[in-house]
């Protein structure tokens, strides 16, 4: 199991910084199937965008991404120090066809094998798990 960690502050950092962080992991772990990298990166970027977009802080949100990968799976957590909130993942369903927002969380649910949200000890934390399938 190899673990990668990165702290980001947005602004000035944004989702492009998260893409750069993930690219480092993909480069160092070429055995991860390409289809799984696509799914994992799409999910993590959605969660990071969600944090940046809905951050209640005016001074910028500080968030941490931790990614642990083994030969069979990858797990990631993203946590921030923004205002705590409660969220029922089950209540987030795909919106109507012509909605311009609201697809992020439902999409993450369909991209990974396990998805959790927790708000406690001063932090909001999203966690995802993905098994590698050849």
């Amino acid at each position: 199991m190899t673990t990668y960690q990165r702290n980001l502050t947005a602004p000035p950092e944004d989702v492009d910084s998260v893409h750069d962080f993930l690219q480092t992991i993909w480069t160092e772990n070429p055995e991860i199937p390409a289809k799984e990298k696509i799914r994992i990166e799409t999910a993590i970027i959605e969660l990071a965008a969600n944090i940046i977009l809905y951050s209640e802080t005016t001074a910028g949100v500080i968030f941490n991404i931790t990614v642990s990968t083994s030969k069979d799976n990858l797990e990631a957590s993203i946590s921030d120090n923004g205002e705590l909130f409660s969220l029922e993942l089950d209540s987030h369903i795909m919106p109507e066809d012509y909605a311009e927002s609201g697809r992020g969380i439902p999409m993450v649910k369909s991209l990974v094998d396990k998805f959790e949200f927790d708000s406690s000890d001063g932090r909001n934390t999203w966690r995802i798990w993905k098994e590698f399938r050849s």
Binding site: E41, E100, G102
Partner: peptide
């Protein structure tokens, strides 16, 4: 090479 839900929103808009 990459689109997220914000990008989808821009396409729908």
């Amino acid at each position: 090479d990459f689109i997220d839900s914000s990008g989808l929103g821009a396409l729908i808009n």
